[in-house]
Design a protein around this nucleic acid. Structure first.
Lengths: 262, 262
DNA sequence: GACTGTGAAATTCTTCACAGCA
DNA sequence: TGCTGTGAAGAATTTCACAGTC
């Protein structure tokens, strides 16, 4: 994912496997739900069911964090919430900026889960001058010109990119230059970043395509190969490709005005 | 993921690894961009760079599809676009319904990548009677009452859930009962589905938490353990947990009832 | 007796390195 | 010569199964 070097020093220091890290938020969510219901302890079996994984995997995952359970009893919910939160770095406050306030950016700004789990929306940034000053989710949108100042003034290290694909790399470069070292990318583009910067991407179109693959397979099993569940279309390859590429250029929000050549 | 049996009978030929399937959309996107620029052929090295993977992996991935390249030359762009599209089931038309037309649902409806890559938004569905009839992305929102009829009339097999977490399982059950067999879930909940139904989830909060984990580690490497990049907060564990759980219940869009101030 | 923690086996995924073909 | 296709090695992840502890 990163660049050049011998991959990343990555999951080395504490030795928590990446796959485990990716599941910790899942466990945390299930645990907070239990905590809310004042459930004092859970077994690996119960918690695993709530998190949608199997219990052996969960126990193995927790074993990387330490021995936080009690044999014959289970895990103390509150204690485990704390330990996982700490491990994930959620006991501190992470200021986040969202760049590109189209439909998606607005949805993200309004997303309750942001504000409450250690993340604070420090600023909303858009390239459209007409957006400047408008309140979205109670926060006034600021112009892209302010990007570097906002990052530095707020000590922002996490940036969310919800711009059209065409603007994403440029925005990314500016974020990184200003000091951001983690990026969540919603634009359908591969971002190039220097070593030491983490990028995670969320791509709606990709997820749907993966579903389509499995869906097609199901259909094929029932009715034989090459049979679709609905009106088969078979568009001209070139035309479809062009349309898809054009759509990508519009960005996650379609043609909604967002950040553009600043 | 699905059946209790020995998983898939692995119908001889088609043994494409899941990891490979997940990358095909990435290759497809890079290829469509090349196709648009009328580039006739690419080497594995070039295409891999464009897709953000390494070339050995790409060649291995393609080897599961067949031998579509030419030694000493590379891959024919158009041909590969077609082959991957076919493999992913994108040469047919997939009607999709989006349930939950809040900020996020509206963003999804407006997402250009949906419409152009084999997916067609067949309907937008919301539980709020006030939303019924309102046009979002050019499509009139329909009430949840119509869900089953819509699914059946349109032969929908893929559903997108963008409702609050509390409604997600119920919506999921109805979708599945009506015939949907693939679900893309944006609600921060684990969905339970019968065998044969695929669920993929997209969770903004989880992605951010994973970034925070790595971010924390970076900070720790520089300045020693337990040092934050910003104002450390250390909230009461129980309070934080309750707040987080409460936020989840509000759903991906927070508590905003409907479409943004368009 | 119940349930965790964990070596070891099994499986999946990635990378290497080179044979083989245009 | 240049680049694909792929066995084989290596790494990561998942699962098994059971010893250990409360």
């Amino acid at each position: 994912m990163a660049t050049g070097r011998t991959h990343r020093p990555a999951t080395r220091s504490r030795g928590i496997p990446e796959a485990t890290v990716a599941r910790l938020p899942l466990y945390l969510r299930a645990l907070t739900a239990l905590s809310e219901r004042s459930v004092p302890t859970v077994s690996s079996e119960e918690l695993a069911a709530a998190a949608g994984v199997n219990s052996a995997k969960l126990r193995k995952d927790f074993s990387y964090l330490g021995s936080y359970g009690t044999r014959g009893v289970g895990y103390d919910v509150e204690y485990l919430v704390y330990q996982i939160s700490r491990e994930l770095g959620l006991t501190q406050d992470w200021p986040v900026v969202i760049v590109g306030i189209g439909n998606l950016g607005a949805a993200l700004a309004n997303y309750g889960g942001f504000a409450s789990r250690g993340f604070r929306v420090a600023a909303l940034i858009d390239a459209d001058p007409a957006m400047a000053g408008k309140p979205v989710a109670g926060i006034a949108v600021q112009h892209t010109d302010q990007l570097e100042a906002i990052i530095r003034d707020n000590g922002v290290s996490i940036g969310v990119i919800a711009t059209p694909a065409g603007a994403a790399q440029q925005v990314c470069d500016r974020l990184v230059a200003a000091g951001v070292t983690s990026i969540l990318n919603f634009a359908p583009t591969v971002l190039t970043v220097p070593d030491g910067v983490d990028v995670r991407k969320v791509d709606l179109s990709i997820e749907l395509q993966i579903l389509a693959f499995h869906e097609q397979r199901k259909a094929g099993e029932e009715t034989g190969p090459e049979t679709g569940p609905s009106a088969p279309v078979a568009p001209t390859t070139a035309a479809a490709a062009a349309a898809a590429a054009a759509a990508d250029r519009k960005g996650p929000d379609g043609d909604v005005p967002a950040v553009m050549p600043a």
